[in-house]
Amino acid sequence: MEFGPHLMLAMLEGLVQASVLTLTALGLSLVFGVMRVVNVAHGEFYMLGAVLAWWITSLLGGSALIEFTAALILAPLLVGLLAGLADWLILRRVDYDPERTIVATIGLLYIIQQVTLMTYGPDARPVAPPFNTRLALPWFEFGENGFALYWPWGLSTTSYKLFVILAAILTLIGVWLLMAKTKIGLILRATQLDSETAQAFGIPVERIYALVFGMGAALAALGAVLVVPIQQAHYLMGADPLLLSFIVVIIGGLGSLRGTVVAAILIGMSDGIISVFFTPTLAKMLATLLVAMVLVYRPQGLFGAKPA
Protein backbone atom coordinates (compact mmCIF):
# COMPACT_ATOMS: atom_id res chain seq x y z
CA MET A 1 0.00 0.00 0.00
CA GLU A 2 1.17 3.51 -0.66
CA PHE A 3 1.78 5.99 2.13
CA GLY A 4 -1.47 7.95 1.72
CA PRO A 5 -3.92 5.08 2.04
CA HIS A 6 -1.75 3.52 4.76
CA LEU A 7 -1.92 6.72 6.82
CA MET A 8 -5.67 6.89 6.38
CA LEU A 9 -5.99 3.32 7.61
CA ALA A 10 -3.82 4.14 10.60
CA MET A 11 -5.95 7.18 11.38
CA LEU A 12 -9.13 5.13 11.26
CA GLU A 13 -7.64 2.58 13.64
CA GLY A 14 -6.50 5.48 15.81
CA LEU A 15 -9.98 6.93 15.86
CA VAL A 16 -11.45 3.63 17.09
CA GLN A 17 -8.83 3.48 19.84
CA ALA A 18 -9.43 7.12 20.70
CA SER A 19 -13.16 6.52 21.03
CA VAL A 20 -12.70 3.75 23.57
CA LEU A 21 -9.99 5.68 25.39
CA THR A 22 -12.17 8.77 25.60
CA LEU A 23 -14.89 6.87 27.42
CA THR A 24 -12.45 5.18 29.79
CA ALA A 25 -10.51 8.34 30.58
CA LEU A 26 -13.70 10.33 30.98
CA GLY A 27 -14.70 7.94 33.77
CA LEU A 28 -11.39 8.42 35.56
CA SER A 29 -11.53 12.17 35.09
CA LEU A 30 -15.09 12.38 36.38
CA VAL A 31 -14.13 10.54 39.56
CA PHE A 32 -11.04 12.67 40.07
CA GLY A 33 -12.87 15.88 39.24
CA VAL A 34 -15.80 15.44 41.58
CA MET A 35 -14.29 13.32 44.36
CA ARG A 36 -10.64 14.42 44.20
CA VAL A 37 -9.48 10.82 44.47
CA VAL A 38 -7.46 8.70 42.07
CA ASN A 39 -9.04 5.36 41.27
CA VAL A 40 -6.22 2.93 40.56
CA ALA A 41 -8.75 0.12 40.07
CA HIS A 42 -10.23 1.92 37.05
CA GLY A 43 -8.53 -0.44 34.59
CA GLU A 44 -10.06 -3.41 36.39
CA PHE A 45 -13.56 -2.02 35.99
CA TYR A 46 -12.75 -1.80 32.29
CA MET A 47 -11.60 -5.41 32.31
CA LEU A 48 -14.73 -6.46 34.20
CA GLY A 49 -16.85 -4.81 31.52
CA ALA A 50 -15.18 -6.93 28.86
CA VAL A 51 -15.38 -10.14 30.86
CA LEU A 52 -19.03 -9.57 31.75
CA ALA A 53 -19.76 -8.88 28.08
CA TRP A 54 -18.32 -12.29 27.26
CA TRP A 55 -20.36 -13.91 29.99
CA ILE A 56 -23.60 -12.24 29.03
CA THR A 57 -23.21 -13.03 25.33
CA SER A 58 -22.33 -16.65 25.99
CA LEU A 59 -25.16 -17.17 28.51
CA LEU A 60 -27.82 -15.60 26.33
CA GLY A 61 -29.01 -17.40 23.29
CA GLY A 62 -30.25 -15.59 20.25
CA SER A 63 -28.73 -13.53 17.53
CA ALA A 64 -25.40 -11.77 17.91
CA LEU A 65 -27.22 -8.46 17.81
CA ILE A 66 -29.51 -9.26 20.75
CA GLU A 67 -26.65 -10.76 22.77
CA PHE A 68 -24.47 -7.76 22.19
CA THR A 69 -27.19 -5.22 22.93
CA ALA A 70 -27.82 -6.97 26.23
CA ALA A 71 -24.12 -6.84 27.06
CA LEU A 72 -23.92 -3.19 26.10
CA ILE A 73 -26.63 -2.33 28.62
CA LEU A 74 -26.09 -4.89 31.38
CA ALA A 75 -22.30 -4.98 31.70
CA PRO A 76 -21.80 -1.24 32.42
CA LEU A 77 -24.80 -1.32 34.75
CA LEU A 78 -23.44 -4.26 36.76
CA VAL A 79 -19.93 -2.79 36.90
CA GLY A 80 -21.37 0.57 37.96
CA LEU A 81 -23.34 -1.06 40.75
CA LEU A 82 -20.31 -2.99 41.92
CA ALA A 83 -18.17 0.15 41.93
CA GLY A 84 -20.83 2.11 43.78
CA LEU A 85 -20.96 -0.65 46.35
CA ALA A 86 -17.16 -0.66 46.68
CA ASP A 87 -17.27 3.09 47.21
CA TRP A 88 -19.95 2.78 49.85
CA LEU A 89 -18.25 -0.06 51.71
CA ILE A 90 -14.61 1.00 51.42
CA LEU A 91 -13.86 4.52 50.19
CA ARG A 92 -16.56 6.13 52.31
CA ARG A 93 -14.98 4.52 55.36
CA VAL A 94 -11.53 5.93 54.65
CA ASP A 95 -13.07 9.42 54.34
CA TYR A 96 -11.89 9.75 50.72
CA ASP A 97 -8.46 10.63 52.06
CA PRO A 98 -6.38 10.85 48.84
CA GLU A 99 -3.52 8.61 50.00
CA ARG A 100 -5.63 5.99 51.71
CA THR A 101 -7.98 5.89 48.72
CA ILE A 102 -5.08 5.16 46.40
CA VAL A 103 -3.90 2.33 48.62
CA ALA A 104 -7.44 0.96 48.97
CA THR A 105 -8.05 1.06 45.22
CA ILE A 106 -4.72 -0.71 44.64
CA GLY A 107 -6.14 -3.40 46.92
CA LEU A 108 -9.37 -3.37 44.94
CA LEU A 109 -7.37 -3.74 41.73
CA TYR A 110 -5.83 -7.00 42.89
CA ILE A 111 -9.09 -8.29 44.34
CA ILE A 112 -11.03 -7.76 41.10
CA GLN A 113 -8.21 -9.03 38.92
CA GLN A 114 -7.54 -12.15 40.97
CA VAL A 115 -11.19 -13.06 41.49
CA THR A 116 -11.58 -12.83 37.72
CA LEU A 117 -8.59 -15.12 37.32
CA MET A 118 -10.15 -17.62 39.73
CA THR A 119 -13.55 -17.63 38.03
CA TYR A 120 -13.11 -16.62 34.40
CA GLY A 121 -9.66 -18.11 34.10
CA PRO A 122 -6.47 -17.09 32.35
CA ASP A 123 -7.74 -17.43 28.76
CA ALA A 124 -8.46 -14.64 26.31
CA ARG A 125 -11.94 -15.04 24.83
CA PRO A 126 -13.62 -13.27 21.92
CA VAL A 127 -17.10 -11.82 21.66
CA ALA A 128 -18.79 -11.88 18.27
CA PRO A 129 -19.54 -8.44 16.84
CA PRO A 130 -23.24 -7.81 16.24
CA PHE A 131 -22.55 -6.83 12.65
CA ASN A 132 -19.30 -6.77 10.79
CA THR A 133 -19.71 -5.78 7.16
CA ARG A 134 -16.44 -5.00 5.45
CA LEU A 135 -16.50 -1.56 3.93
CA ALA A 136 -13.93 -0.78 1.27
CA LEU A 137 -12.75 2.79 1.28
CA PRO A 138 -11.81 4.89 -1.72
CA TRP A 139 -8.57 6.75 -2.26
CA PHE A 140 -7.80 9.37 -4.88
CA GLU A 141 -5.05 10.02 -7.33
CA PHE A 142 -4.18 12.60 -9.92
CA GLY A 143 -3.58 10.61 -13.03
CA GLU A 144 -3.67 11.29 -16.75
CA ASN A 145 -7.39 11.82 -16.56
CA GLY A 146 -7.09 14.29 -13.69
CA PHE A 147 -8.63 13.58 -10.28
CA ALA A 148 -9.84 10.02 -9.89
CA LEU A 149 -11.15 7.84 -7.13
CA TYR A 150 -10.06 4.24 -6.81
CA TRP A 151 -10.36 1.43 -4.25
CA PRO A 152 -6.93 0.36 -3.03
CA TRP A 153 -6.66 -3.23 -1.95
CA GLY A 154 -6.56 -3.49 1.87
CA LEU A 155 -7.98 -0.05 2.59
CA SER A 156 -11.13 -0.94 4.41
CA THR A 157 -12.85 -0.82 7.71
CA THR A 158 -15.84 -2.59 9.19
CA SER A 159 -19.28 -1.35 10.00
CA TYR A 160 -18.65 -2.37 13.59
CA LYS A 161 -15.65 -0.06 13.93
CA LEU A 162 -17.69 2.84 12.65
CA PHE A 163 -20.35 1.92 15.18
CA VAL A 164 -17.76 2.13 18.00
CA ILE A 165 -16.89 5.66 16.98
CA LEU A 166 -20.55 6.62 16.74
CA ALA A 167 -21.41 5.06 20.10
CA ALA A 168 -18.58 6.96 21.78
CA ILE A 169 -19.75 10.24 20.30
CA LEU A 170 -23.33 9.58 21.44
CA THR A 171 -22.16 8.70 24.95
CA LEU A 172 -20.09 11.86 25.11
CA ILE A 173 -23.08 13.96 24.13
CA GLY A 174 -25.12 12.12 26.74
CA VAL A 175 -22.60 12.82 29.50
CA TRP A 176 -22.35 16.44 28.43
CA LEU A 177 -26.12 16.86 28.51
CA LEU A 178 -26.25 15.21 31.91
CA MET A 179 -23.60 17.53 33.33
CA ALA A 180 -24.81 20.73 31.69
CA LYS A 181 -28.58 20.44 31.51
CA THR A 182 -29.90 18.29 34.32
CA LYS A 183 -30.40 18.74 38.03
CA ILE A 184 -28.06 15.82 38.74
CA GLY A 185 -25.40 17.58 36.69
CA LEU A 186 -25.89 20.75 38.70
CA ILE A 187 -25.51 18.80 41.93
CA LEU A 188 -22.37 17.11 40.63
CA ARG A 189 -20.82 20.43 39.65
CA ALA A 190 -21.71 21.96 43.00
CA THR A 191 -20.13 19.01 44.81
CA GLN A 192 -17.04 19.31 42.65
CA LEU A 193 -16.66 23.02 43.49
CA ASP A 194 -17.04 22.69 47.22
CA SER A 195 -18.22 19.48 48.84
CA GLU A 196 -18.57 20.99 52.31
CA THR A 197 -20.83 23.80 51.18
CA ALA A 198 -22.78 21.32 49.06
CA GLN A 199 -23.28 19.19 52.15
CA ALA A 200 -24.43 22.25 54.09
CA PHE A 201 -27.04 22.89 51.40
CA GLY A 202 -28.46 19.44 51.94
CA ILE A 203 -26.81 17.58 49.08
CA PRO A 204 -26.21 13.98 50.19
CA VAL A 205 -22.52 14.13 49.27
CA GLU A 206 -21.77 10.53 50.21
CA ARG A 207 -24.50 9.18 47.95
CA ILE A 208 -23.37 11.51 45.17
CA TYR A 209 -19.86 10.15 45.53
CA ALA A 210 -21.08 6.57 45.26
CA LEU A 211 -23.05 7.55 42.15
CA VAL A 212 -20.05 9.27 40.57
CA PHE A 213 -17.74 6.38 41.36
CA GLY A 214 -20.27 4.01 39.81
CA MET A 215 -20.69 6.23 36.74
CA GLY A 216 -16.92 6.46 36.26
CA ALA A 217 -16.58 2.68 36.38
CA ALA A 218 -19.58 2.21 34.09
CA LEU A 219 -18.00 4.47 31.47
CA ALA A 220 -14.85 2.34 31.55
CA ALA A 221 -16.94 -0.81 31.28
CA LEU A 222 -18.85 0.64 28.34
CA GLY A 223 -15.58 1.34 26.56
CA ALA A 224 -14.53 -2.24 27.19
CA VAL A 225 -17.80 -3.75 25.90
CA LEU A 226 -17.34 -1.75 22.73
CA VAL A 227 -13.76 -2.95 22.31
CA VAL A 228 -14.26 -6.60 23.10
CA PRO A 229 -15.43 -7.67 19.62
CA ILE A 230 -12.17 -6.21 18.28
CA GLN A 231 -9.89 -7.24 21.13
CA GLN A 232 -10.46 -10.33 23.29
CA ALA A 233 -11.42 -10.29 26.97
CA HIS A 234 -8.57 -11.21 29.33
CA TYR A 235 -8.09 -10.78 33.08
CA LEU A 236 -4.92 -8.67 32.64
CA MET A 237 -6.34 -6.36 29.98
CA GLY A 238 -6.91 -3.50 32.45
CA ALA A 239 -3.31 -2.35 32.79
CA ASP A 240 -2.90 -0.54 29.48
CA PRO A 241 -6.19 1.39 29.59
CA LEU A 242 -5.36 2.45 33.17
CA LEU A 243 -1.99 3.82 32.15
CA LEU A 244 -3.36 5.50 29.03
CA SER A 245 -6.26 7.00 30.99
CA PHE A 246 -3.80 8.36 33.52
CA ILE A 247 -1.82 9.92 30.71
CA VAL A 248 -4.94 11.43 29.17
CA VAL A 249 -6.24 12.83 32.44
CA ILE A 250 -2.86 14.35 33.25
CA ILE A 251 -2.26 15.86 29.83
CA GLY A 252 -5.82 17.14 29.70
CA GLY A 253 -5.53 18.73 33.12
CA LEU A 254 -6.56 16.88 36.28
CA GLY A 255 -10.31 17.02 36.64
CA SER A 256 -11.09 18.96 33.45
CA LEU A 257 -13.63 17.03 31.37
CA ARG A 258 -13.15 19.05 28.19
CA GLY A 259 -9.36 18.72 28.42
CA THR A 260 -9.81 14.98 28.95
CA VAL A 261 -11.79 14.55 25.75
CA VAL A 262 -9.31 16.57 23.67
CA ALA A 263 -6.33 14.72 25.14
CA ALA A 264 -7.99 11.32 24.70
CA ILE A 265 -8.60 11.93 21.01
CA LEU A 266 -5.06 13.25 20.57
CA ILE A 267 -3.40 10.38 22.43
CA GLY A 268 -5.72 7.66 21.15
CA MET A 269 -5.08 8.82 17.58
CA SER A 270 -1.33 9.14 17.97
CA ASP A 271 -1.10 5.83 19.80
CA GLY A 272 -3.03 4.17 16.99
CA ILE A 273 -0.96 5.84 14.31
CA ILE A 274 2.39 5.30 16.06
CA SER A 275 1.75 1.62 16.65
CA VAL A 276 1.16 1.14 12.92
CA PHE A 277 4.50 2.71 12.02
CA PHE A 278 6.88 2.38 15.00
CA THR A 279 7.93 -0.07 17.74
CA PRO A 280 5.50 0.25 20.61
CA THR A 281 8.10 0.02 23.41
CA LEU A 282 9.99 3.15 22.43
CA ALA A 283 6.74 5.04 21.85
CA LYS A 284 5.40 4.02 25.26
CA MET A 285 8.70 4.82 26.95
CA LEU A 286 8.86 8.33 25.55
CA ALA A 287 5.16 8.94 26.15
CA THR A 288 5.43 7.90 29.80
CA LEU A 289 8.47 10.09 30.38
CA LEU A 290 6.77 13.00 28.64
CA VAL A 291 3.71 12.66 30.83
CA ALA A 292 5.81 12.58 33.98
CA MET A 293 7.51 15.76 32.84
CA VAL A 294 4.17 17.41 32.12
CA LEU A 295 3.10 16.66 35.68
CA VAL A 296 6.37 18.02 37.05
CA TYR A 297 6.42 21.25 35.07
CA ARG A 298 2.75 21.85 34.22
CA PRO A 299 0.62 20.09 36.84
CA GLN A 300 -2.47 21.88 35.52
CA GLY A 301 -2.08 19.91 32.26
CA LEU A 302 -1.35 21.12 28.77
CA PHE A 303 -4.86 22.43 28.24
CA GLY A 304 -5.76 23.55 31.75
CA ALA A 305 -5.50 27.18 32.78
CA LYS A 306 -2.70 28.11 35.15
CA PRO A 307 -4.21 28.43 38.63
CA ALA A 308 -4.09 31.93 40.11
Binding site: I90, V103, A104, I106, G107, Y110, I111
Partner: peptide, 9 residues
Protein backbone atom coordinates in the same frame (compact mmCIF):
# COMPACT_ATOMS: atom_id res chain seq x y z
CA UNK B 1 -5.52 -6.94 47.64
CA UNK B 2 -7.65 -7.99 50.58
CA UNK B 3 -4.98 -7.05 53.10
CA UNK B 4 -4.40 -3.65 51.50
CA UNK B 5 -8.09 -2.85 51.71
CA UNK B 6 -8.44 -4.10 55.28
CA UNK B 7 -5.36 -2.17 56.39
CA UNK B 8 -6.56 1.15 55.03
CA UNK B 9 -9.96 0.61 56.59
Amino acid sequence: GVILVLLTM
